[in-house]
Design a protein around this nucleic acid. Structure first.
Lengths: 258, 258
DNA sequence: TTAACCAACCTGTATTACCAATTAATGAAA
DNA sequence: TTTCATTAATTGGTAATACAGGTTGGTTAA
């Protein structure tokens, strides 16, 4: 199950917050409206006031409601996107952000890469193709190294840190790891070729081609991500169907036994 | 200042959460470590246990800590956004990074901006031109608002946060503030026109033109930055020369006095 | 000696009851 | 009609208490 989202969580404030979130989404608490007072909510959800307060604070931190002391709790119209909680970034968001940033980094790198860094890039590429042949598909270290060298070459520290940051986040998103693996498994050769294309463009000092090559590379990652996401959705539905079928057959067995 | 970030907030749980956040960032509560128990924290921060619980819930929703019932509260491994020291970024680096990121954001925004956001952009532009006429040149709020709306419209939270982060850093760099002022002073009209050009491109849903307009806008900022930096360098040299001359003349006076 | 078990202790969970501070509405007075 | 004090409603915060799950370390049995 999901770590954070399930309604089967033990802690009460989460359950309450989730119900209130549903009420917020369903329009039961319309945008801009004042929510019922804490005491009333505590009655409605059958929990104590402190727990309601906790749920409200959770909603507040999520940017869904605003608390005005002495006045009431108000449903916010526009969700404040203050959720810089990398855990609930979607894989697609991260990938999109990386396309934008890393493509530009590649374009910049076309004019900043040193000979030494070209050698490092080739080494990283070689490492990748060895990983590919040896079937060690779980590792992204060579991949990351390749991109890191390009980032480093720009000598723009904010940019370098942004790219590193995005990698860090991504490596903690299971969806992306899975997509990465599936990409390597099904078409590892092509992945190498894409990196080679980037390297070639950089060697030619061609900023535009480097940018395009990087974008193409990410476009494939994005496709793979879509594919695995779809596949997982299908599997989930099948799982649910199987569970239902099993329950149904159990019922029949019970009838037969009676 | 900011609605959410200030420590002068009235509600106690926010103050406590902020202090704990500082402790988390400073390494006083290292990643992975267990925080002191609620009872102890309530003593340390001089608030009651429910309030501590509220603060912890806020941190939990922010994704900074994890609560394990019966065991304790644990500091989550957080992605090192703060690992870079923004203080020794050069203004040029920041501006370059912003060109890359914000130009792409503008290109994206061309297809994502809503009618409401167009209205907001126009309002921000109006605000800027009023600031310009009234001679209130120190303020960047309307400027930042303009760029923030574009960022928001992409609905890409990593991207939004990156742009916000770069703004935050920039606003603490005196060199850039100075360049900004000099740009406004010498050519406020043109600055408005540049923003207008961006807005026009966005209205036309023309990603390419929007990107180019944004790049041009930043190019001017970069020029202004170069100019003021040069000017400051010249002034600094003059100051040093003057200081030396003064010292020299003082020496001569001392000689004369002996 | 080692492994399994169990009980005491620690920690978070949740409630009740109470009072304080702030805000918004009310109504009286100018 | 406006202004200002009063009052009601609401959130803010605390204390004390009981409970449930987890951890730990000692005891017991193998």
């Amino acid at each position: 199950m999901s770590k954070t989202g399930s309604s089967g969580n033990k802690r009460t404030y989460r359950k309450v917050a989730q119900k209130m979130l549903a009420a917020l989404d369903s329009g039961e608490f319309p945008a801009g409206a004042r929510l019922p007072p804490e005491r009333e909510l505590s009655e409605r959800y059958g929990v104590s006031r402190p727990t309601i307060r906790e749920a409200i604070i959770a909603l507040e931190v999520m940017g869904r409601v605003e608390v005005q002391t002495g006045s009431g709790v108000y449903a916010l119209k526009v969700f404040k996107t203050n959720s810089d909680n990398p855990r609930d970034y979607s894989p697609f968001e991260i990938t999109e952000a990386r396309v934008l940033v890393e493509s530009e980094a590649a374009a910049l790198a076309a004019s900043t890469l040193t000979d030494e860094q070209f050698t490092e890039l080739e080494a990283a590429l070689e490492e990748m193709s060895q990983e590919n042949e040896s079937g060690n598909l779980t590792s992204e270290v060579a991949d990351r190294k390749f991109h890191a060298i390009i980032a480093e070459s720009t000598q723009n520290r904010p940019l370098i840190n942004i790219i590193r940051h995005l990698w860090d986040i991504q490596e903690n998103l299971p969806d992306i790891r899975m997509a990465h693996q599936s990409v390597c498994k099904t078409d590892g050769e092509r992945r190498i070729a894409e990196h080679q294309a980037i390297l070639d463009a950089l060697k030619a000092r061609d900023a535009h081609t480097a940018r395009v090559a990087m974008r193409n590379h990410f476009a494939r990652s994005m496709d793979a991500l879509h594919a695995t996401t779809e596949q997982r959705a299908v599997e989930e539905i099948q799982r649910q169907l199987n569970a239902r079928r099993e329950r149904f057959s159990l019922n029949r067995i019970q009838y037969a036994a009676e």
